[in-house]
């Protein structure tokens, strides 16, 4: 039996095609996932960068200041009571480093260095940065890997001492990684130390 209405079939077929095209046009959504993620990545890197600046610019200095101040406060009476004046600068630096990092002198614990050592401050920051910002901070806390020196020079006025400390650490924000070696310098006054 011949198909009589070929034009009708043609128009109907065109209509079906049109409907299909319209349905495809409204249903096909192209998701550009990387574009959606860009603001999140930017924010993450900004947070990590701000954290690093705060760590280098303030935290390490303040931690060194406080631990050095307390260490020196403890070292002074110790020297007076035990060995007398330390003649060699090297010996002073050895004892000072032990007090600042470990809170001990010749293996004996110092009361005012409890939870106040430089190493303790580093461990605190490692923990809080991981728990709060999900940024992994790793300080190279090995005793031999941290160099400290206490001295006086033309930058220190009378009754002031300077401390330099060199420290390696890394900051890993998962999408960005920083490996740093920092020289931390502070100056503090010993004028208010108690006479012993």
């Amino acid at each position: 039996m011949a198909i009589k209405n070929k034009k009708g079939m043609f128009f109907t077929f065109m209509s079906i095609l049109l409907v299909t095209a319209l349905m495809l046009a409204f249903s096909s959504d192209v998701y550009i996932t990387s574009k959606n993620r860009i603001p999140v990545i930017k924010l993450r890197i900004k947070t990590a960068d701000n954290y690093l600046k705060s760590l280098e610019g303030a935290y390490l200095k303040r931690a060194l200041y406080v631990s050095s101040y307390s260490a020196m406060e403890s070292l002074t009476p110790y020297i007076n009571q035990t060995t007398g004046l330390l003649i060699e600068e090297t010996e002073l630096n050895i004892k000072f480093k032990e007090a600042v990092l470990n809170g001990t002198i010749d293996g004996s614990s110092l009361d005012n260095m409890q939870d106040n050592t430089f190493i303790y401050r580093l461990e605190e920051m490692e923990e809080i940065s991981q728990n709060t910002l999900h940024i992994a901070t790793n300080f190279n806390k090995g005793y031999e890997n941290i160099n400290t020196i206490i001295f006086q020079d033309e930058t220190t006025v009378p009754w002031q001492v300077a401390v330099n400390l060199t420290l390696d650490f890394s900051v890993d924000a998962e999408i960005a990684l920083w490996n740093k070696t920092d020289d931390v310098s502070i100056i503090f006054s010993i004028r208010d130390f108690k006479e012993t």
């Binding site: 109907t12 209509s15 409907v19």
Partner: peptide, 15 residues
């Protein structure tokens, strides 16, 4: 032919 036109018009309205 008129039937075809009606069917096509109906299809467009449905679309």
């Amino acid at each position: 032919k008129k039937k075809a036109y009606f069917f096509t018009l109906d299809a467009f309205i449905a679309t």
